[in-house]
Design a binder for these strands. Structure first.
Lengths: 252, 252
DNA sequence: GAAAACGCTTGATCCAGATCAATCCTGACT
DNA sequence: AGTCAGGATTGATCTGGATCAAGCGTTTTC
């Protein structure tokens, strides 16, 4: 993902104030002084490799994590070996918020490609946030955002058709890449078709068929993991359930 | 819902420290002094009636709400008149957490039956929480809990069959009634079949058929809105997808 | 207290997407 | 450069639950 950028190991230990994510990540909107304080509690570990876990469901919770480069998926494993993919996390996105309540991880987090991740011990963060109102506010905002996002996903899974789900997924990725300075129309997927299907509540085969269909219709070009979005206008129509099914939409 | 309790208007303006919800609601785990401070910012409005709105999607956000008696549904309306029900809220449950980020409500909230609701102006709450670490901690916990709950719903909608969804819904209600001192096995539904179906991503007809099926199988007794759960053991099996479908479960 | 309106149930039919079943890459390893 | 394994595609078939279509209470309204 992230457009095949070469990871510079020089930049991994960069301080928050010098990090390109400063406007997207936790420090967003903090005064330089406060960023400095936050910086002191952030731990920067060595890069992780494809398949490594940040944590597993049930682990004791002590830190939140932020993706710095690469991508991470979170998922809820079930006893029978199945799982529900809960999210794909790009640079600047916070992971582990669902663990605060029970002080125990509620899902597992696995890196999808070589990734750098910042670790923020929660006790320290909590303490700092009660001294720095803008940090507390930022925490509330980020937790609230996560809830809003999950609610959007509930609508997607509860009401939308397969093609609406995939189109929405691709446009969401596109938007997020764009905000991170990558191309909005040309990117690599770090997750498998299987994982996409799982996330969207669809079978792998359905995802695969939809990619071919979208390509045939000129909405995008897909070659393995490489995606090029060609027609944003029509993709947006697909998300709204317009176009092919002549505007009729069920009330449920 | 809530077992047909008569609402005593005497109790509506009760202070937090005297409220029966003190162990479930925001004040959970706070020192008496701090409960007192919280109490000062809580607004107690007159009871609302079936169909009244606490707020609508897009409204400017200024307060969180807590159900004191009765029940409230939150839902995301869509342009075409449809909606996605996001949750049913029982006494002690916090509403509006998804609005903090954008300072604008992300969903609508409508009361399902005559209900009393406490209003907590968020600016005051935020300020108080930075002075009272245990309140801040409680806020983080409640926000985190909401995320965890939404994630559970994602799994329900993404992976579970219709009967698993309905059984899980009934057991969740049962559990929540129990914690509020009501019967876990005998309760009234304040929402319609339509709303249940919408919440669970199912058609009304499916919900109705499942109720009859569950009753025929002796799992419960249903008469209109009155539900009696008879066999918790087997209901739990249904949730896990066991029993009728001989334990096979797909890996997706 | 009649009637309209709504919510719920039940039956018949249909279809989007799952499942089953090959085959086909493509990259990793020898 | 050949083999192998996991992912991706494509086709054929099946099915859970949606949709369509009546009826049937109950509640609300005037």
């Amino acid at each position: 993902m992230s457009g095949r950028k070469v990871i510079s190991f020089e930049n991994i230990k960069v301080a928050c104030k010098n990090c390109s994510l400063v406007t997207l990540c936790l420090p967003m909107g903090l005064e330089p002084d406060d960023v400095e304080k936050l910086d002191e509690i952030v731990k920067r570990n060595r890069p992780l490799h494809r398949g490594d876990h940040l944590f597993r469901e049930g682990d004791k919770f002590h830190s939140l994590f932020v993706v710095k480069t690469g991508s991470v998926k979170t998922y809820a494993p079930s006893e029978d070996g199945g799982e529900q993919v809960l999210g794909f996390h790009l640079p600047g996105e916070l992971i582990g918020l669902d663990a605060i309540e029970k002080e125990q991880h509620h899902c597992s987090a696995k890196v999808l490609e070589t990734s750098a991740v910042c670790e923020i011990p929660f006790t320290n963060l909590e303490q700092l946030s009660s001294q720095v109102p803008s940090l507390q506010h930022q925490m509330y905002r980020l937790l609230s955002r996560e809830i809003g996002h999950d609610e959007d996903m509930l609508t997607l899974l509860g009401k939308r058709s397969a093609e609406e789900r995939l189109a929405a997924f691709l446009l969401s990725l596109s938007e997020r890449f764009k905000r991170r300075g990558f191309s909005a129309s040309d990117f690599y997927l770090s997750m498998s078709r299987h994982e996409i299907g799982n996330y969207l509540g669809l079978a792998v085969e359905t995802v695969s068929r939809l990619f071919t269909r979208f390509q045939d219709e000129g909405l995008l070009k897909v070659e393995r993991k490489h995606i090029q979005l060609l027609d944003f206008e029509r993709l947006n129509c697909v998300v709204q359930g317009e176009e092919r099914n002549s505007g009729k939409r069920q009330y449920t």
